[in-house]
Design a protein around this nucleic acid. Sequence first.
DNA 1: CCTACCGATCGGTAGG
DNA 2: CCTACCGATCGGTAGG
Lengths: 203, 203
Amino acid sequence: MTAPAARGDRAAVTPATVRDAATTLFAEKGYHGTALSEVAARLRIRTPSLYNHMSSKQELLAEIVLRTSQEVWDEFGAAVDGHDDVVSRLREAARVYALRHATHRREALIVNRDVASVDEPVLSQVLELRRRHERAVRDLIAEGADQGVLVVETPRVASFGVLEMCVSVARWFSPGGPLTAEQVAEQYSEFALRVAGFVSAPS
Amino acid sequence: MTAPAARGDRAAVTPATVRDAATTLFAEKGYHGTALSEVAARLRIRTPSLYNHMSSKQELLAEIVLRTSQEVWDEFGAAVDGHDDVVSRLREAARVYALRHATHRREALIVNRDVASVDEPVLSQVLELRRRHERAVRDLIAEGADQGVLVVETPRVASFGVLEMCVSVARWFSPGGPLTAEQVAEQYSEFALRVAGFVSAPS
DNA sequence: CCTACCGATCGGTAGG
DNA sequence: CCTACCGATCGGTAGG
């Protein structure tokens, strides 16, 4: 346990910097595996000082998870907007979802690992946003199957396959790797169409 | 905190029943989110009595994770064995991997959530087993691409897509749902071939 | 932003 | 298998 450094060595602490430090540590060690003393140490302050910028550890988690879930739903809407055909809508939905999981890896890992630790009433809000997103993608695939442009046995299974494949980008992608987040998202949007049974040259 | 029930109300406690109770709770609440007192309560005994059947909480986690990782690698070997062509090998590899994640959901959730909490030297053994499995699947896809029976931009990306898609079955599959584990595994093995760019009727 | 401190709970041990 | 108990650590508060 080292003492905090002198004033000049540390940046200003704000609610945003506290949330950012918590995001890094929750992603790395999990919500229950992270002590607030570790969050404080990252910011070079003492644990009680954190309470000038947040109200509780639970609030930090709830904010991270709710904000992320809301952004996912908003991005989905923006992505499918302006595309009329179901294949383009599915492609864009998968692209933005995969892209987010490459560019917001920490938040994605927290949501997928610790969403069950979020207290009510936020938990219900988060689950509702997730359900809406899942439903929208499932409906997209079902619609494509009805139109005959997609070929799937079970839309529900295919939609889980597509969505969870995109989610998992957060688990292996590295910003320092050979591919950019955009390149990976592009490949994954192609994977999504393949899983959904899209054939560019129908027979 | 209720007292343990009378003798006749509880089954015999053994190392296996302790591990099973821990598996259920670790999967549900995470390793750090689970107290040994909860494991004991599930077995209707007091916390110190657990130590007659295990040596530490960490040992429980290490056993679950190592055993599962070893089984994944063994199953992969058995699945590809006896198949000569790369497409059949990939199909069977994906099928058994998806099937395992539908039938061993608790263990899968623990491995994917808490593997980083496993202490050395077990952690290194686990990571080595995972690397071997990943490498074997990547090599399978690369080989198929070389032969021209699979079409992928980047074998590494496609192999992550395939593997992580199968992993995620553990996150949504329900044994009481409309599909059996075998039916889901069959669909996922088809998804895997689609992601890897297999076309049954080559042009 | 800090020191001092709180009650609660944790994993684990002693010793039957 | 239990009761009794340990030191350590947790999230959080008091009061500057």
